[in-house]
């Protein structure tokens, strides 16, 4: 059920990317999809009643293996979040330059792309 809600958020982002005419709206759809995918990967490793994957003093190690959440998706999502910031900066700079050249964000008005 929670997975389905997460996928519903991804679908909203996909709809926004496909249907909208405004360039910034398309970027916003991409951002929503990124959030949904990151959230889904973290949710896959969650354990009910689990602890964060940090070794605290006085922990019994065998107990820790059975109670910790999955650290691998967390490490990979950490990478993905930072990369999404870089790609967002690149996309937005393309949008800003397009606006300076054409004076609009409307993608149906931007027709002189051939140079």
């Amino acid at each position: 059920m929670l997975y389905a809600l997460c996928f519903l958020m991804f679908t909203i982002g996909l709809y926004c990317t496909v249907v909208k005419k405004n360039m910034v709206k398309i970027v916003i759809g991409i951002v929503i999809m990124e959030y949904a995918v990151n959230l889904f990967l973290i949710m896959l490793g969650y354990r009910i009643g689990g602890v964060a994957p940090i070794v605290v003093e006085g922990h019994v190690l065998g107990n820790f293996v059975d109670s910790s959440v999955d650290p691998l998706p967390q490490a990979l999502v950490l990478t993905a979040i930072v990369i999404s910031l870089g790609s967002l900066a690149l996309i937005i700079s393309i949008c800003v330059r397009t606006y300076e050249k054409y004076g609009t964000f409307d993608i149906t008005q931007i027709r002189r792309l051939k140079g």
């Binding site: 949710m43 969650y46 964060a52 940090i54 959440v69 967390q74 950490l78």
Partner: peptide, 8 residues
């Protein structure tokens, strides 16, 4: 935070 991922 509630999914026990404080770093993220």
């Amino acid at each position: 935070l509630f999914l026990r991922a404080p770093d993220i």
